[in-house]
Design a binder for these strands. Structure first.
Length: 761
DNA sequence: AGCACGCCGACT
DNA sequence: GTCGGCGTGCTC
């Protein structure tokens, strides 16, 4: 007992789960504490997972804990267990999951002291927010930087200000004098107060929602079920666009927070940047809570704000955390309900590093904490729908649109095959039927939306004479033609070059764009529908921060007749005056080798269809296709998700695909494709005889569709099993053997990673 | 994963 | 003569 205790610490390091350190503090160590430790020649940050009396590591090699983080109270055992589950399930070391889940300043011991300090803080006033951007002369660079820092984070500590400019504090004091800023003497880590902008249409919409519309009977029934839940319950809230899912979340949360003044709730959204209305609605509706009771967590936040918000959740000050997938790993000691909006969205799957599914982890977390979770969608993932069919999730259906006058749009398939046979020719890729419909809307003063699944001018540039096609020199992908800035660009690595004047192979100067992207469609429409004000919204036109908002505002205020965009336009925004939605190029997804392509296409089409006819205008959706008889389109035309799901699940069952089987991928990156494939073959051989492996099907190692990115060749090996446990057991035993594969044909640098439940294969 | 140490080509 | 390429090995 007189021996100093040993703490077992998780570090962001793949080799060992826990590293032992001696503890020589005056106070006993606490599990969940964040500590700074020496590691090799450097120092590292770790989380205490266990406290023990002895260690297997010889005592002369044990090092001591250097620093203890006072800014963060220890995380709960439940949080440590959540991390341990995720680490085990996705086959990473504890610390590789735990530490990246913390905001960056907590991972840097030098910054701990500052985080903890309670020092004067400055916040902008609403007047300051309006006045400051224009009040300063442009040559006053230091002042402008100070103003930007203040406005951007909403909070600025005196010491942070001093770093920008020696006399910054005096300047801030003068702004307090002029009413542009105020001193905030409260806790340094408290959350800034959001200023609601009621002058914008979104603000007005949020204010209107705040008045609480009467619940439909479907909503009331759903709420009653959620209210009645005691302990763990998984609800699949199934309702078309406009059926009022958000209203159900809001009321369920309201009741929970009223009933239990100490409780916290987590609300996940796929992409917060695309759903500002959602956030505003929440802030308006829960405006009566203390300032700082609603915090958001997503990667777009400035570091300081993200840290403040994370700690507010951890310290129970935040009652509602509204965030993207990364928020599923937030520490919330009083978590009592989880909502996952648009649960089918692929954005919930992290696509790099730890490839977790935030939706799946949310369900696990609800089960762990014995609390209800609500998964909402108009087009649930087939995984969730299947769970509901099996009775493991309770399905709550919102059948009617909440806005009384809004009706489902009529969906019309434009059979391009038929049109061609009748000698009707497309104009710039658009059927005359669609063009006529666009012109008619323009005459009636209604808006139209054209959905194109590709950005850029054309997917690539080609030479008619010799068949040369523009490709990326670093990747095995087409170079996309961007006419606006006269470049060829690779959408996989960012490579960019000027459009060549002639074919580099044969010198032919007649290079022609191949296929159609948003820019080309935008250009074509301007020519085909004279007088229309056309606006394009895609990742290129909204690159600058905040520009998406400005473009959307332009649509809301009627400054646009025809909107051309990628999926981006389908998410989160209600366009009150759009009465026609046209869909181009949908067919490509029908025959994809990705078995989930159909599911994604269905969800996308349902979502864009939902953009049509929301405010009393009868909406119409036109889908151009060469496969008008495809059952997927028939389901879309009937707005029949259930029918689509039934057919799709039947196919999945027969093909033994998810959700009837479980999958994992081994991915390998190497300098040559041969090396990557050789590594995977060796890995497949290692699987032989491992526990669970007899129930695991392994497929051949194959190159990825885009086999080369940035000169790195990529290949993968698919594993599949009817038993999740068998697959997990095999993966666990496989891991150390993968590390040992070396030499032979695999020499050269190989990077590999295991992905559980991959979304794209 | 980092970040050291450790042996072979083109440069101030 | 060095600076620097990335191959191999270690981290409680």
């Amino acid at each position: 007992m007189s021996q100093p205790p040993i703490v077992r610490v998780a570090l962001d390091h793949p080799l060992a789960e826990l590293y032992d350190y001696a503890w020589r503090g005056d106070v006993p160590p606490r599990i969940g504490q964040l500590v700074g430790v020496p590691f090799g020649r450097r120092s590292a940050v770790g989380l205490i997972y266990e406290v023990a009396d002895t260690s297997d590591v010889p005592s002369d090699r044990l090092k001591e804990v250097e620093t203890i983080c006072e800014a963060m109270s220890p995380v709960s055992q439940a949080w440590l267990d959540l991390i341990a589950f995720a680490a085990g399930y996705y086959h990473r070391a504890l610390g590789e999951v735990a530490l990246p889940a913390l905001p960056a300043p907590l991972r840097e011991p030098e910054r701990w002291a500052r985080l903890f300090a309670r020092e004067p803080q400055f916040a902008p006033t609403p007047e300051g927010r309006l006045a400051l951007p224009d009040a300063l002369p442009s040559r006053a660079v230091a002042l402008r930087r100070l103003a930007e820092a203040l406005l951007e984070s909403g909070r600025l500590s005196a010491s942070a200000a001093r770093e920008l400019h020696a006399k910054a504090v005096a300047t801030l004091e003068s702004w307090v004098e002029s009413g542009w800023a105020c001193r905030v003497e409260t806790e340094a880590l408290a959350n800034p107060v959001e200023v609601a902008d009621v002058s914008s249409p979104d603000g007005a919409a949020a204010a209107a929602t705040a008045r609480m519309p009467a619940a439909t009977s479907d909503q009331a029934a759903a709420l009653a079920e959620i209210d009645a839940a005691t302990g763990f319950a998984s609800f699949l809230l199934y309702g078309v666009t406009g059926s009022g899912k958000t209203e159900v979340y809001l009321r369920a949360l309201e009741r929970l927070l009223e009933r239990r003044p100490d409780a916290q709730a987590l609300v996940l959204v796929p992409e917060i940047n695309l759903t500002p209305q959602f956030e505003r609605t929440f802030r308006a509706r829960f405006g009566h809570l203390a300032p700082g009771a609603i915090v958001s967590l997503h990667s777009g936040l400035a570091e300081g704000e993200r840290t403040r918000n994370w700690l507010a959740a951890h310290d129970r000050e935040a009652r509602i955390v509204l965030g993207t997938r990364l928020a599923v790993l937030a520490s919330m000691p009083a978590l009592a309900m989880i909502v996952v909006d648009e649960e089918h969205e692929p954005a919930y799957k992290q696509q790099e590093g730890l490839r977790y599914s935030a939706r799946d982890l949310a369900v696990w977390r609800a089960k762990q904490l014995d609390i209800p979770i609500v998964l909402g969608s108009a087009t649930p993932s087939l995984e969730s729908w299947h769970q509901a069919e099996q009775g493991r999730y309770q399905r709550l259906t919102l059948a009617t649109r909440a806005v009384a006058e809004a009706v489902l749009p009529t969906v019309r398939l434009i059979d391009q095959d038929m049109e061609r046979k009748r000698g009707i020719h497309s104009i710039e890729g658009m059927s005359p039927t669609l063009v006529a419909a666009l012109r008619a809307r323009l005459e009636r003063g209604e808006q139209s939306l054209i959905f194109v699944n590709r950005r850029g001018y054309a997917p690539t540039l080609a030479c008619d004479a010799c068949g040369w096609v523009a490709g990326c020199p670093r990747c095995s992908a087409y170079a996309v033609l961007h006419k606006a800035d006269r470049t060829l660009r690779c959408h996989h690595c960012g490579w960019e070059a000027r459009i060549p004047r002639a074919c580099p192979e044969c010198g032919n100067v007649d290079l022609a764009p191949l296929g159609r992207g948003t820019q080309r469609v935008e250009e074509a429409i301007a020519g085909v529908v004279p007088g229309a004000r056309v606006l394009r919204i895609d990742a290129d036109s909204t690159r600058r921060k905040g520009s998406a908002e400005a473009l959307f505002d332009n649509v809301h205020t009627g400054g646009v007749d025809i909107l051309v965009g990628t999926q981006m336009v389908a998410k989160g925004h209600d366009f009150q005056r759009v009465s026609l939605v046209g869909v181009l190029n949908a067919d490509t997804a029908l025959f994809s080798h990705d078995f989930r392509a159909g599911e994604r296409l269905f969800a996308q089409l349902m979502q864009v269809s939902g953009r049509a006819g929301r405010a009393g205008l009868p909406g119409e959706v036109m889908i151009q296709t060469r496969y008008a008889n495809h059952p997927l389109y028939a389901s879309i035309a009937r707005h029949d998700y259930a029918g689509f799901a039934r057919a799709a699940l039947k196919e999945r069952r027969e093909a033994r695909l998810p959700p009837f089987a479980f999958q994992a991928l081994l991915r390998a990156d190497a300098r040559t494709l041969e090396a990557a494939l050789a590594f995977l073959d060796a890995a497949a051989a290692e699987l032989e005889g491992l526990p669970g492996a007899e129930h695991v099907t392994r497929y051949d190692a194959v190159p990825l569709t885009i086999v080369k990115v940035m000169h790195v060749h990529r290949a993968q090996l698919l594993l599949e099993s009817g038993s999740r446990a068998a697959l997990q057991a095999a993966l666990r035993a496989w891991q150390p053997r993968l590390r040992d594969i070396k030499g032979g044909d695999t020499r050269g640098m190989i990077r590999w990673s295991v992905e559980v439940d991959p979304l794209d294969i």
